[in-house]
Write a protein that binds this DNA or RNA. Structure first.
Lengths: 202, 202
DNA sequence: TGCACTATGTATAACCG
DNA sequence: TCGGTTATACATAGTGC
């Protein structure tokens, strides 16, 4: 007539509810007995979908009392949590360091690019030619030249009319060099055209 | 052989302790079963003079979770509706905060953009170079440069018709160079247009 | 849906080594 | 003090109203 309890989720909704009601009632009763018999502080809280308010024993206030006592102790026992947090923090820091490094590399590249353009325009101070700069510049120029060569090849091969090609290449070169220190009136006019151009591309 | 439980304090110290041990163990077991069978959130805490640490089920952390949930409810201990409204409000506030933050970031970006152009035009007061501004400016300029570089690449690689290309490219290059060190009336106009342009890129 | 019933599984009081 | 055993009180699954 009565089966042994299988310690697993009761699929049937109705019997689950019934079981919950019976067992939670029994639990609270036992908790009550324990406290009466042994005179200890205790509390129990059960949330269920079957009642709008959580079951709390011995009462809301009683629970509060026990809980605050428990929290007090918990504060002293947070070593383990602290450790977890520490390792978490370590992870985060590691990630941030990676980001930082990536940014550093990018930044260095920009720097060298500027430096290169400055060189091309002869606007570089003597003292800027330190070992590191020159070394990085070498590497960067190589990369840059490759790009340009590649570009020229493509344009040359795809080149439609021969007359239009050279201006392209020159224009390209100018475009790349441009960000460094250009000034002057002509410049200003071009800006306006540029705006339209940019707009058209969006 | 076995007496009926008298629901009163057990005077005998020894049997009280024994009873406590047995019953508390049984309680936790039943709590465990209840949770497994019905899939509800629950916790139990028992303080006793017999153990240095309080008995807590399902675990310190589990108790914390249930307890905080309980506290949340307790605070709004009015009606279930109130609770729903409160949580609804909390959601709304959270969303509004997100919006606010997003707006703040956008706003700051605009600010820094203006600042950047002002810098380039030499129209910046000394006092404006505080740490925060400079830091944000750095970040923003980087972003800005990347955008421009990207733009150059696209325009360089996509060169369409031969006749229209050279002016475009030159215009682009000028636009990119223009914000640097330009002054004068025309410039001011350009900056404004330029800002709109950037905005379009966002 | 919920309560009441009852057969049966479980918890545990008392005891023991 | 503790862990194990046993008899028995108690809790509760399944059932029907």
């Amino acid at each position: 007539m009565r089966s042994k309890v299988k310690l697993s989720f009761i699929e049937n909704k109705q019997s689950r509810k019934t079981t919950f009601k019976k067992r939670s009632k029994g639990l609270m009763k036992k908790l009550d007995e324990l406290v009466k018999l042994c005179d200890v502080k205790a509390c129990g809280i059960i949330f269920s979908p079957y009642e709008s308010n959580p079951l709390a024993w011995p009462s809301r206030e009683g629970v509060d009392e026990v809980v605050s006592k428990f929290k007090d102790l918990s504060v002293n026992n947070q070593t383990k949590k602290m450790v977890d947090q520490a390792s978490f923090m370590r992870q985060m820091i590691s990630k941030e360091k990676d980001k930082l490094h990536k940014l550093y590399v990018e930044n260095r590249e920009s720097q060298i690019q500027e430096f290169m353009f400055a060189c091309l325009k002869g606007e570089v101070m003597e003292y800027q030619f330190d070992k590191t700069n020159v070394k990085d510049l070498r590497i960067y120029m190589k990369k840059y030249l490759n790009k340009l060569t590649h570009r020229i090849e493509i344009l040359t091969e795809n080149g439609e009319s021969s007359s239009s090609l050279p201006p392209h290449v020159i224009a390209d070169a100018d475009a790349l060099a441009a960000p460094i220190g250009n000034t002057g009136q002509i410049q200003n006019q071009n800006v306006n055209q540029n705006q339209q151009q940019l707009h058209g591309h969006e």
